[in-house]
Amino acid sequence: MNAEERDLQLYPIVPENLIANSKTISDLQSLSSSLLGIAAGILGLESYTGFLFYLLGTLFVSTLIVTFVMGGKPEVYSRGGWKDVIAADVTGGVMGFVLTWTLFFGLVRV
């Protein structure tokens, strides 16, 4: 029995809540990344600037989630703590971001 298994035996978790929480967070981040895409499209950002904007935006959203939704205690609601929240936030919404980014870039500028 390694350290992680031992930890799980000592402090059991509720898998349903883990799944529900990650679903809520992924809902939030897909919504917010689409909004960031709208902003990037309106601002007319191109290539690396746009992705830098996305990175900064998701960091902002992660901070908001940790502060408002989790009440400043991310380790209560997700296994990895705030690192997990940021990682899920940055990787999960890129597709939605690019979608609305290109859409609004085309809408505003053509």
Binding site: I13, N17, A20, L35, G57, V69, R79
Partner: peptide, 15 residues
């Protein structure tokens, strides 16, 4: 973003 995040999303403690 602030409005959406602060609009009553509920998480449950996992432990």
């Amino acid at each position: 973003l602030v409005g959406i995040v602060s609009s009553g999303w509920e998480l449950k403690p996992i432990s």
